[in-house]
Nucleic acid binder design. Structure first.
Lengths: 345, 345
DNA sequence: CTGAAAGCGCTTACAG
DNA sequence: CTGAAAGCGCTTACAG
């Protein structure tokens, strides 16, 4: 069994000798750079092909000071992460852009924020990546000044709440929450509660504000809000709290599908029928949302599109030095079975 | 704002000059190799420290022909992938080993098998990784001969059904399925069905065989089996088929938690009460399993441990040239609420 | 349009 | 125990 690793590597020196030109010219031809006559270029490519030349990424990296890779650092508890399909879809979207370009994705999953910053620093000093994706933006996010100082190109998923030198790719999730509230109000609900995500996370706070605004707009005050850390466990706890009140809500708007699914579970456990006695809406439209019973009325996000767009934006930034912010189409409400008119009791 | 990228890099040449030794000696000292006196080594390390020297991974890669990275290629539909927390937990486990060693994980998510093989080849010719993890083993898995030929070190998750030059890290999932069946039999069930995973996947077939064997051992024949591709949608469909039979099963053993959760949803939708009229067991113990209602009785896998062990094994193989197979503690049944005694009707 | 040379920052025999 | 040199395989000014 012959191993690729043992075969002596074909280098541009071999190609140059065979084609009767200099190494430099081979490099120029191979990189489609101007200054090589068409026929010379053709001959060089020809020779490279028959010799089976393949570029050495390592040599290219060293001399060009590029990594040909992009990085994603995720700071989350692994179990919580596992229940959130956002990243796998996001990554799949990123890959659709990177793979054809011959670029790789370097992924880090870290347990906490200090480790997260350290990981970015290591990525830079090791020259592992040419740019990174910044997800799960937080309030006053320390990663932004840190990356700015490191001089590493980045794209943020969502718009930061602070000055940022990086392009952002964002999606309006405010609309979807407002739609959810309006939908419930139209169904006849008045006591609507919100199980919010972490206020330290930008999307958590944004959805909560959208909820309050929509409630006010409907003349229902601010609505009852319970904050969580976005974990399934916290979503379940919050639901328990809401449902054990003397006057419980007839509908709950959850800031994420995993929490909403846990909410359905808690309601059923407490003998509160969904949607008859309690309407529930989620956010994300994860695959499970269609398969729980009743199927979850939720707001559809598009993480794959987000991944694709973020990758394109980041590559643009790296290649041209600048990139414009992108706003993706707003996430929309998807009506399924978990919300209906409240039954009078 | 000063950027790290613009600062001229401190190299071993600088350290060598400052310490009054040769570059080679600096390299030896920095890599803890024999042949450097203790005091010289100390002085060199000292100088490197005060100069703020940091190794150039790119230069190391080129001259040492190593990548300091490991690879994971996942061939799955992104949406299906998102519902399966296995990989995120597995990756988190892998990272706990890689990060302290200064190694990175290169992740690829590809849509199909041909792309998968091509991705491995590209990883090798690009010299992106020093070894790879092989997950989701299939029958007659083409990746094994492919990687063997490429000469890339690998570790398989589970034992292949074919000759393999690679160490494996496996976990007995047979026991858990048998326990599930015994548990149901003890509860009084006799009509027990199995919603199996894909027979093309080793763990799908293995769990199905374990189910049949356990049924036979209980004197219940082979039991009714419906095959799926492990997707949530297929799990839901299979449940629908099973429950719409004239004589439906009183219990279903699912080959995965996502399918089992979809099964609970379908049962509820059809007005079949779980666990009163239908007992359900799963496999994996994903986080959702504890939060659906009734909470899922399932078999607990430990993907983080698997990730850690696989990483350790693969590193051992890369560094020493060989590594022994590892068998992790068997996955055990976790009894929760989704299985109970069948009610007579 | 093309060539010869230096350089990226390490590692690794080979000498002493 | 230490040094001087070649080499990893490219890219990139600098000349012509």
């Amino acid at each position: 069994m012959e191993s690729t690793r043992d075969a002596p590597r074909v280098t541009i020196a071999d190609v140059a000798r065979e084609a009767g030109v200099s190494k430099g010219l081979v490099s120029f031809a191979l990189n489609d750079r101007p200054g090589v006559s068409a026929e010379t270029r053709a001959r060089i490519l020809q020779v490279a092909g028959t010799l089976g030349w393949t570029p050495s990424l390592r040599a290219r990296s060293l001399s060009s000071k590029r990594s040909f890779a992009l990085g994603l650092v995720i700071a989350r508890d692994p179990e919580v992460l596992g229940s959130d399909p956002f990243f796998t879809s996001f990554i799949a979207g990123v890959e659709t852009i990177l793979a054809p370009e011959g670029l790789a994705l370097v992924l880090s999953v870290v347990p906490d924020e200090p480790t997260e910053l350290q990981t970015y620093r290591t990525l830079v000093t090791d020259g592992r990546v040419d740019g990174v994706f910044l997800s799960d933006l937080r309030r006053d996010d320390a990663r932004i000044p840190c990356l700015a100082e490191l001089g590493l190109p980045a794209v943020t998923l969502g718009r930061p709440d602070q000055p940022s030198p990086f392009p952002s790719v964002s999606i309006d999730d405010t609309d979807g929450v407002a739609e959810s509230v309006r939908h419930l109000v139209e169904l006849g609900h008045r006591r609507i509660a919100h199980v919010a995500g972490s206020p330290a996370m930008l999307h958590g706070g944004r959805r909560r504000d959208a909820f309050s605004a929509a409630m006010s707009a409907a003349g229902l005050g601010n609505g009852q809000i319970v904050e969580t850390d976005f974990s399934i466990a916290a979503g379940a706890d919050a639901t328990r709290v809401l449902l054990s009140q003397p006057e419980r809500p007839t509908a709950i708007v959850f800031a994420s599908d995993p929490m909403a699914i846990a909410g359905i579970g808690v309601a059923q456990e407490l003998g509160v029928s969904v949607p008859d006695q309690l309407s529930i809406t989620g956010f994300d439209d994860i695959e499970f949302a269609r398969y729980v019973y009743p199927a979850l009325t939720t707001v559809g996000a598009t993480p794959m599109v987000w991944g694709r767009t973020a990758a394109t934006t980041l590559l643009g930034l790296i290649r041209t030095g600048s990139a414009a912010d992108v706003e993706l189409p707003a996430a929309r409400l998807i009506i399924r079975g978990s919300a209906s008119s409240p039954t009078s009791h």
